[in-house]
């Protein structure tokens, strides 16, 4: 038991010195290990938002440009509806992306780490640190032991999140919020666009 503590302590120290290089310059986010699952999630988010949504919006805007520049003057209103549609898709995509990133890739900001206690994030390390005795961790106002410290007004993580017990996953990736509202918004928006388009094309004769 004593030996175990010794090993974990030395591991902690070596990682701590590494992590001091990993302080995030000017960022409010704490350093956080990316687990395999989290990387997969990030890639899926990028495929969806930076890929599919943006492609849809750009397709609309490109064709709007073709209509407005190449087609005859009767199609000005059609081109305008295309432009509005493309811009609204872009806005919906951005909003949805930000919202999902906030939920899925949540990381505690430095002020959150200092002023609040996140038991899920801190409890495992707290006990570890207490037993090791010579921790570099700081105590917050609430008295909880935290795996981070503030150096020169910058947040420095002093414990690796890989030292969390296996049963505790890192923060973030706990919940997923489905994009039903964005999908329904796009559906209704496109339906309105098509109805307007139908009217404009039918009226053209």
């Amino acid at each position: 038991m004593e030996e175990n503590r010794q090993t974990s302590n030395s591991t902690t120290e070596s990682i701590s010195s590494d992590l001091n290089d990993n302080e995030l310059y000017g960022s409010t986010l704490a350093f956080q290990d990316l687990t395999f699952d989290k990387k997969l999630d990030i890639r899926a988010i990028q495929r969806t938002f930076e890929g599919a949504y943006i492609r849809t919006a750009l397709g609309q805007l490109s064709f709007a440009m073709v209509i407005l520049k190449v087609f005859s003057k009767d199609f000005v209103l059609v081109g305008t509806t295309y432009t509005i549609h493309g811009i609204l898709i872009l806005i919906a995509a951005t909003r949805s992306r930000d919202e999902l990133n906030r939920v899925l890739l949540w990381e505690p900001s430095s002020s959150e780490l200092l002023h609040h206690q996140y038991p899920h994030y801190a409890s495992g390390i707290g006990s570890e640190v207490e037993s090791s005795g010579d921790s570099t961790s700081t105590a917050t106002a609430t008295g909880a032991v935290t795996p981070w410290t503030v150096v020169n007004n910058r947040l420095v993580v002093t414990e690796a999140s890989s030292l969390l017990p296996e049963t505790q996953s890192p923060p973030g990736r706990e919940y997923y919020v489905t994009g039903g509202s964005t999908i329904m918004f796009l559906g209704i928006l496109s339906m309105v666009n098509y109805i307007v388009l139908f009217y404009l094309l039918y009226r053209m004769n």
Partner: peptide
């Protein structure tokens, strides 16, 4: 429309499945 958003526990590939559906 917000009522259409569902909060799910993200176990395994839940997020990826729903993103693929999207």
């Amino acid at each position: 429309l917000r009522k259409l958003n569902m909060r799910l526990k993200n176990e395994g590939a839940v997020a990826r499945d729903h993103l693929a559906n999207e």
